[in-house]
Design a protein around this nucleic acid. Structure first.
Lengths: 153, 153
DNA sequence: AATATTTATTTGACATGTCAATCATTGTCA
DNA sequence: TGACAATGATTGACATGTCAAATAAATATT
């Protein structure tokens, strides 16, 4: 059963390319829903979880707010409010940078680190369970998607 | 430049599978933004555009509200409000089904049909401009994505 | 027939995404 | 220096996504 049946469209796609675009959008959406489960059951939204993973990667130095935004899929203005909530929950500390007072550095807290560690195996398991492809196809997929992203610039 | 650099993550991905998941999510997001341009410049949101395309495919018979939702990426409750707006703009007619008064049939209006026709070439052009892949890779991509979606059930 | 269940849709409340505009701070350069 | 532009972050206003609960009409059951 192809995407055609899956989306129950009566008319065929205008082009194979269009079918690909829709397939990517739909797959991403399905993935998002699937991953949301284990994350949201711990009281985090997917986006909050994303921020925490980025901050974990940044280590104790932390990162300026907009640097976090740049590493996310989302756009700038959303980050402030997301960070507000993470701070409220005690998962993030924020501090104005003394050398450049425009910047606000964000740091992950030990509580959040512990929570992430607890979630790691579940999430990684989910990924490998979802993406069951032979090594070669995995590489191809990554290459093709990168190709598409590059032609979007 | 791979997704790793692109997202500027310091730490490597936990797994190749995880990288693939993130690549799909990011590509979808980039695509969404790109397609949004020509659609929103005509005063439609991407989702509204989607609904209209589905209704066009359905022909003059129209479709029950939830049938439209089932063919979309989005979930049920959103559809009502989206349809409200399309009706306000004169792009959709709604009518309760006489044989089963629970259902509400939605039909695309001539005005919306004209608008879609006008947008078709732009959107199709965009698709083929974005997805520049040799036929073989295109087929592979579609196959792989379908595979992933199936293992999400 | 009367009640219970299911189906189709809608509403309320709230999280998130997005743009435009704003504010503070820093950097530039005439 | 002092006005002006650029940068980092935030806020306001509004569109959309999501869940849970409510409505309304059909179906199934006793």
């Amino acid at each position: 059963m192809g995407l055609l049946q899956e989306i129950k469209q009566t008319k065929p796609f205008a082009s194979r390319e269009q079918e690909a675009v829709l397939a990517i959008l739909k797959t991403a959406d399905d993935l998002r829903r699937r991953i949301a489960g284990p994350v949201e059951s711990r009281g985090l939204s997917l986006e909050q979880y994303n921020i925490l993973r980025i901050l974990r990667g940044a280590g104790t130095a932390g990162l300026p707010t907009l640097e976090v935004a740049a590493r996310m899929i989302e756009r700038t203005p959303a980050i402030t409010r997301l960070m507000d909530k993470l701070e409220q929950k005690g998962f993030v500390d924020r501090e104005r940078c003394p050398t450049d007072r425009r910047q606000v550095f964000c740091r992950i807290t030990p509580a959040a680190l512990a929570l992430l560690t607890e979630m790691d195996s579940a999430v990684i398991g989910l990924d490998s369970q979802t993406i069951q492809l032979p090594e070669v196809e995995l590489e191809q997929l990554l290459k093709i998607l990168q190709n598409i992203r590059e032609s979007l610039t």
